[in-house]
Design a protein around this nucleic acid. Structure first.
Length: 783
DNA sequence: CTAGGGTTAG
C-alpha cells in the first residue's frame, strides 16, 4: 500500500492501528511520517503508542528523542518511558526519568510509575527510597506496586522485607502470590514457599500455571513427593493446560525424588524439550544409578545439535552412585577436554568430589591444582576429600594453606575441618577452630554444631560436648546420634540410653546409625539386657534392617558378658553371611573369657575371610599363650612374619602447651628421655608399695606387646603419661591418645598413677575413652 | 523449570 498517495486525512484510530500493525522498524518510521503529515505530531496518545512500539523494536534512542519533542508529556507517556528503558537494558535511564518527573514537572507519579520504577532499581537503597515514596503518594497498597516491591526485595535477597510488604497488602492477586512464592524459592526458602502456596490454596486464591511452575522446584528440592503430588492434583483439578514449563517442573520433581520412571514418562510428554528438561532428566537418571540411560540421553542431546551446558556435565557425573564409576567419570572428563568444554569452578569441583569419593585423591588434587579459578567450594571439596580418606594431617595442612589465601573458610570448611580434628583427636586444634568460629562470625548452623559436639566428644571433653548439645535450639537425628555415640565412647551407657529414650520421646526418627550408637554404648557399659531389648525394638518396632555392624555389636554385648555360646548361636542364626567384623568380635570375647574352642572356630573363619589382617593372628597366638601352648603360639607368629604382615606399631600422642609429642614403645629418642624414665622408676616404686604387680597375662586385644622379649620395653602410653606429669603443673589433667587398645598392665598402672599423683588422666585408645581418677577407671575394667 | 562443597557409623 502507498500511504503517501492517500489524499484524505487519516483519523487517529487509523494511525494507531497502522502503528500496531507495523512489523518492522522502517515500516514504523513510515507510519511516523504519516502521523506528522496528518498533524498528529503533538497528539499525545498517538505519540505514546508510537513510543511503545519503538521500545518494542529496541530503538531506545529514537524513543527518547521522540519523547523530548513532546511539549507537555502526561504521566502515561512518562510511564511508558520508565517501563521502556528498564525493559531495554537501561534501568538507570528509568530512574533518572523518574527523578526528572518528580523534580521538574507538576505531574504526580501513579501506581504504574511506581511499579515500573521499582522494577528498575539497581540497588537496595534506591528500592527503599522508592518504596517510601510510593507509600507517601498513597500507592503502598496497590497490588502492582506491591508485586514489584516483593519481586525486587527478593532479588536483593531481602526476603524479610518482601514478606513484610506481602503480608501488609490488603488485597492480593494471583500475580502477587506467584511473585512471593517465586521469590522465596529463588532464595532457597523452600519450606516457606510451600507454606505460602498452601495458604494460597486454603484461601481459595485462583492459581495459574505460573504458580505451579514456581512452587514445584521447592517440592523437588525438599524431595517432598507428597507435597509435589498434591500440587499436581490441584493443577489437574483446576484444569490447567499442562504447558511444557509445568511438565518440565513436574518431571524435575519426580526426577529429584528418585522416581525416574514417572519422570521419563513426563519427559516424553513434553512437546518441545529444552536443555533444561534434558539436564533435569539426565541428572535424575544419574543420581538414580541409571548411568546408561543418562549417557544415552546425553548422546541424543549431542546428536540433536543442541548446546550442552555445564549443568549437563554436572548432571552426568555419577556423584551419588556407590562405586566403580571411575571409568565413566574419566570418560566424561575426557569428553570435556576434547570438545573444549571449559571446566568452570562448578564442573571442576564436581569432578574433584567424585575423584575424592572414589579414593582417587591424586587425580582430584591434580584437577584442583590445575583449576585456575578456585572457589571456596573447590577448597572445601579438596579438604573434605582428604578428611574422608583418613588423610587428616593433609586435610589440616591444606586448610592452613587456604587460610593464607584470600579465601575465608565458611561453615562447610569448618564442618569438614572439625571432622578431621575429631579423627585426629587434637583437642587444642579443635578448640582453636571453635575460637575461629566465634571470631570469624561463622554461621553456627546444625552441621557446624554437630561437628563441634563430635570433635569435643572424640577429643575427650564429653562435658563440653554435652553443654554444646544442650544449648542447641535445633537438633536433628544426626545430632542425637553424635551425642549418644559420644556418651558410649566414654563408657556412659546409662546416659546414652536415657538420651536415646528422650530422643524418641521428642519424636525424632532413629536411624540405623542411632541404633548402632546405642548398641555400641551398651557394649561399652556391659548393659546386656538393655542391648538385647534395643536390638529387638530396632528390628520389630522400627523395622530397620540390621547391618553387619549391628550384628557385630550384639555379638560384642553377649560375648563380653561371657555368654559365648549364646553369641555363637546368634551368629549361626544370622540371615546374612557373617563377615570378619562379626567373627573378630567373637574372637575378642573368647580372649577375655579364655575360651579356646570357640576361639579356634572363630579364627579359622577369620583366616579364610580376612587373611591380610594381623590382629586376629595376634589374638589367637595370645590365646595359645594363655593355655601355655607356647610352640603353637610361636608358630602362629611365624605365619605373620612369613607373610610379612605388618602390624602397626603402638604409639601415643600427648599435647603439652599445644605442641604434640609422640612416643613409641621403648622410646629413648625424646629430649626428656632421661627424666621420663627416672619419673617412671620413681612411680613404679610407689606403685609396688601400694600393691601393684606387672600383669603377666597376655594382652586382651591387639595391643603393643607382640613378642615376649618386648616385655622389657615400656609401652608408649606410660612414657607419654610420665612426660605429661613432669611438664605440667600439679593437678592439671592429662590427656593422651593411643592408636591401639590399652593393655591390661598399662590400664592397671594408670589407675595407680592417677591415685598417687592425684591427676585426672584421660586416655583415648583405638576403641574408646578411659577416665582414670583416684585409682579407678570410668570403664569399670570393662573394655 | 537445570549444576558444585559439609555433620553421625565395631
Amino acid at each position: 500500500m502507498n500511504l503517501s498517495s492517500s489524499s484524505g486525512k487519516l483519523s487517529r484510530n487509523t494511525l494507531i492501528s497502522l502503528i500496531n500493525k507495523s512489523s518492522t522498524f522502517p515500516h514504523l518510521a513510515q507510519t511516523h511520517a504519516q502521523l506528522i503529515l496528518n498533524g498528529y505530531r503533538f497528539d499525545i496518545s498517538t505519540i505514546t503508542k508510537l513510543t511503545q512500539k519503538l521500545f518494542h523494536f529496541g530503538h531506545t534512542r529514537h524513543a527518547r528523542a521522540l519523547f523530548f519533542t513532546v511539549p507537555k508529556p502526561d504521566i502515561f507517556l512518562f510511564n511508558v518511558l520508565v517501563r521502556g528503558f528498564s525493559l531495554n537494558d537501561s534501568p538507570s535511564s528509568s530512574i533518572s526519568l523518574y527523578t526528572h518527573l518528580r523534580r521538574n514537572t507538576d505531574l504526580n507519579p501513579d501506581n504504574f510509575t511506581y511499579a515500573f520504577a521499582v522494577a528498575a532499581c539497581s540497588n537496595e537503597n534506591l528500592l527503599m527510597l522508592l518504596h517510601a515514596h510510593s507509600i507517601i503518594d498513597g500507592y503502598g497498597d496497590n497490588v502492582f506496586v506491591g508485586s514489584a516491591l516483593v519481586d525486587l526485595y527478593c532479588k536483593f535477597s531481602r526476603v524479610g522485607f518482601a514478606r513484610k510488604v506481602f503480608d501488609g497488602m490488603p488485597e492480593r492477586d494471583t500475580v502477587l502470590w506467584n511473585t512471593m512464592i517465586n521469590g522465596l524459592v529463588k532464595n532457597c526458602c523452600f519450606e516457606d514457599s510451600i507454606q505460602v502456596f498452601k495458604e494460597m490454596v486454603t484461601r481459595g486464591v485462583k492459581m495459574d500455571s505460573s504458580t505451579v511452575t514456581a512452587v514445584l522446584p521447592a517440592a523437588a528440592e525438599l524431595q517432598e513427593m507428597r507435597g509435589g503430588m498434591g500440587i499436581q492434583c490441584l493443577a489437574l483439578k483446576f484444569g490447567f493446560h499442562f504447558y511444557d514449563y509445568v511438565l518440565t517442573g513436574l518431571m524435575s520433581l519426580y526426577s529429584k525424588c528418585g522416581d525416574v520412571k514417572t519422570a521419563s514418562l513426563l519427559f516424553g510428554m513434553i512437546g518441545k524439550r529444552d536443555l533444561i528438561a534434558f539436564n533435569a532428566m539426565i541428572s535424575g537418571f544419574t543420581s538414580n544409578g541409571e548411568t546408561e540411560c543418562s549417557v544415552r540421553l546425553f548422546r541424543e542431546l549431542l546428536v540433536s545439535g543442541e548446546k550442552v551446558s555445564s549443568s549437563t556435565i554436572v548432571g552426568l557425573i555419577p556423584l551419588h552412585s556407590p562405586f566403580g564409576h571411575l571409568h565413566l567419570a574419566c570418560s566424561i572428563h575426557g569428553f570435556c577436554v576434547k570438545s573444549g568444554i571449559i571446566l568452570n569452578p562448578t564442573v571442576s569441583t564436581a569432578f574433584t568430589a567424585i575423584y575424592n569419593k572414589l579414593n582417587e585423591i591424586d587425580l582430584a588434587r591434580r584437577l584442583f591444582d590445575e583449576s585456575t579459578e578456585k572457589t571456596v567450594v573447590a577448597w572445601n571439596a579438596m579438604i573434605s576429600g582428604y578428611t574422608q580418606n583418613g588423610l587428616t594431617e593433609t586435610a589440616i595442612s591444606l586448610f592452613q594453606e587456604m587460610m593464607k589465601t584470600e579465601f575465608t573458610p565458611n561453615a562447610v570448611t569448618i564442618t569438614t575441618i572439625l571432622s578431621a580434628c575429631a579423627q585426629l583427636g587434637s583437642l587444642s586444634f579443635g578448640k582453636w577452630v571453635h575460637q575461629l568460629i566465634k571470631s570469624k562470625n561463622i554461621e553456627p548452623n546444625i552441621y557446624v554444631s554437630t561437628a563441634l559436639i563430635d570433635m569435643y566428644a572424640k577429643c575427650g571433653n564429653i562435658l563440653e560436648a554435652w553443654q554444646l548439645f544442650d544449648s542447641m535450639s535445633e537438633k536433628n537425628t544426626v545430632t542425637w546420634n553424635t551425642i549418644i555415640f559420644g556418651y558410649g565412647l566414654h563408657g556412659y551407657g546409662h546416659e546414652a540410653l536415657e538420651l536415646f529414650n528422650e530422643m524418641l520421646h521428642l519424636g525424632f526418627n532413629p536411624s540405623s546409625v542411632t541404633f548402632l550408637s546405642v548398641l555400641y554404648a551398651c557394649s561399652h557399659a556391659g548393659l546386656v539386657e538393655e542391648g538385647e531389648e534395643v536390638f529387638h525394638s530396632m528390628v520389630n518396632k522400627y523395622r530397620i534392617e540390621p547391618l553387619t555392624e549391628h550384628y557385630a555389636c550384639m555379638v560384642d554385648i553377649l560375648g563380653r558378658s561371657g555368654q559365648l555360646e549364646k553369641a555363637l548361636g546368634f551368629i549361626k542364626e544370622l540371615p546374612v553371611e557373617p563377615g570378619p567384623a562379626v567373627w573378630g568380635t567373637l574372637l575378642g570375647a573368647c580372649m577375655i573369657h579364655k575360651d579356646t574352642n570357640i576361639a579356634r572356630l572363630a579364627s579359622e573363619r577369620l583366616f579364610e575371610l580376612d587373611p591380610e589382617s594381623v590382629g586376629y593372628y595376634v589374638l589367637l597366638s595370645n590365646i595359645y599363650s594363655t593355655e601355655r601352648n607356647f610352640p603353637k603360639a610361636a608358630s602362629i607368629r611365624q605365619v605373620v612374619k612369613k607373610r610379612k604382615l605388618a602390624k602397626s606399631p603402638g604409639c601415643t600422642l600427648i599435647e603439652v602447651n599445644g605442641t604434640p609429642h609422640v612416643f613409641v614403645s621403648g622410646d629413648r629418642s625424646h629430649s626428656h628421655a632421661t627424666d621420663i624414665y627416672a619419673k617412671l622408676e620413681k612411680l613404679t616404686g610407689k606403685m609396688r608399695e601400694m600393691g601393684y604387680q606387672s600383669e603377666t597375662a597376655p594382652a586382651l586385644h591387639d595391643v603393643e606387646e607382640e613378642e615376649k622379649e618386648l616385655a622389657f620395653n615400656v609401652h608408649s602410653e606410660k612414657l607419654a603419661i610420665a612426660f605429661g606429669l613432669i611438664t605440667t603443673e600439679p593437678g592439671t589433667e592429662i590427656r593422651i591418645i593411643k592408636n591401639l587398645r590399652v593393655c591390661l598392665d598399662c590400664h592397671t598402672a594408670t589407675k595407680f598413677i592417677s591415685k598417687i599423683t592425684e591427676r585426672l588422666i584421660v586416655v583415648r585408645d583405638a576403641n574408646r575413652f578411659h577416665h582414670f581418677k583416684d585409682g579407678k577407671c570410668s570403664c569399670g575394667d570393662y573394655w
